[in-house]
């Protein structure tokens, strides 16, 4: 039997095509778009967004949503700076940052599965909670005013330094590697299959013996841990943890997932979708700013693109459905003849 391209593969090609098209466009319009320095910056920004988006994609593929990732980045970032202040090395901070983020995710998962609250409301609320927690630990001067506090640990700061003389940051490398690992996890392990199953049809998955609660909790832990990891890298690069850390990141991360082909409601997309989506948005941001566009124009273009992506996916689903009905008719005809 001939292997047919399924809709996910087609969608993947479309995203890749978009990234390539945007690369071509910007490199034609600007001579230094493909410069070492710019690419390095682009990939650093993309990785910051992309790490969060990759973690989030696990929850979204499972049919959920995590609006608390911005709050997790903020709280974890500030906690990490404190951890380094008490003398822990950068590597310890890195591990503890992942654990802290994961713990926040666990809390989300616990509330969603045990108290049976919806993902949207739970993570909307917990996002505020985590953000507030970050503010509690934020550095203040004697008058209680927020102040910048520089990271002193050299190993910590080294996480934010370029790997090569010309650029390229560790966060970009980690992002690429983790996105690949997460793709393998989503497609080659039980955890991944179950996540797709739940996102596609939770009731059927439960009837087939899938432990829905467990898979959902793991998804939230992944989302939190990836956000925690992103927080460590971004604080290391910025040499401090400000309270605006992670602000609005949840929406950008959702946007990255959606543009990349993770369907709101679940069942479609994966970490590579989130990867490509984040790359696309970061590239757009980078390129538009290069032409001196104001940030509000960038926002408007990003917003429009997200709408286009959602509209496209809903149309795309309809087209796939029609294709299916057509095939069904054909096979029915061959049956009767």
């Amino acid at each position: 039997m001939k292997k047919k391209l399924n809709s996910s593969t087609i969608r993947r090609f479309i995203t890749i095509g978009l990234v390539i098209a945007l690369t071509a466009l910007f490199s034609l319009l600007s001579s230094n778009f493909l410069s070492m320095y710019n690419l390095s910056e682009l990939f650093r920004n993309a990785a910051y967004l992309g790490l969060i988006a990759c973690g989030l994609s696990v929850v979204m593929v499972g049919g959920g949503i995590d609006l608390s990732v911005g709050g997790i980045v903020c709280a974890t970032g500030i906690i990490c700076v404190h951890l380094s202040d008490i003398g822990l090395s950068g590597y310890m901070v890195l591990i503890l940052g992942i654990i802290t983020g994961g713990a926040f995710g666990l809390l989300n998962g616990f509330i969603v599965t045990k108290l049976k609250l919806t993902e949207f409301v739970t993570t909307l609320a917990s996002g505020f909670l985590f953000f507030g927690l970050g503010l509690v630990f934020a550095y203040r001067d004697d008058h209680g005013t927020l102040m910048a506090h520089s990271i002193k640990s050299n190993t910590y700061l080294s996480l934010g330094q370029p790997l090569l003389p010309g650029g390229f940051y560790l966060i970009s490398l980690v992002w690429v590697v983790l996105a690949i690992i997460l793709w393998v996890v989503m497609h080659k392990t039980e955890l991944g299959l179950y996540t797709f199953a739940i996102g596609s049809d939770e009731k059927s998955a439960r009837m087939s013996g899938v432990n829905v609660a467990k898979i959902k909790v793991i998804g939230f832990i992944m989302s939190g841990a990836f956000s925690g990891l992103a927080a460590v890298f971004v604080t290391a690069y910025e040499r401090t943890a400000s309270t605006s850390l992670g602000n609005m990141r949840e929406f950008l991360a959702i946007a990255a997932c959606v543009v990349g082909g993770v369907v709101l409601g679940g069942g479609k997309g994966d970490a590579v979708s989130a990867f490509l989506g984040a790359l696309f948005l970061a590239m757009l941001d980078n390129g538009l700013r290069k032409f001196g566009m104001d940030s509000y124009v960038v926002y408007m273009i990003q917003g429009s693109l997200i709408l286009v992506a959602i509209a496209f996916d809903s149309q795309f689903a309809k087209i796939s459905y029609r294709r299916r009905v057509k095939e069904q008719r054909l096979s029915a005809q061959t049956l009767t003849s």
Binding site: T189, A197, G199, S200, S204, A205, S208, G209, V210, G267
Partner: peptide, 24 residues
Amino acid sequence: SLVPDLTVMENIYLGQELKKYGFV
């Protein structure tokens, strides 16, 4: 009780996957 986004074989083995070293 099928999951629409999974393949035929993934549906057949859903909940009883054949695994080796943690990989399906």
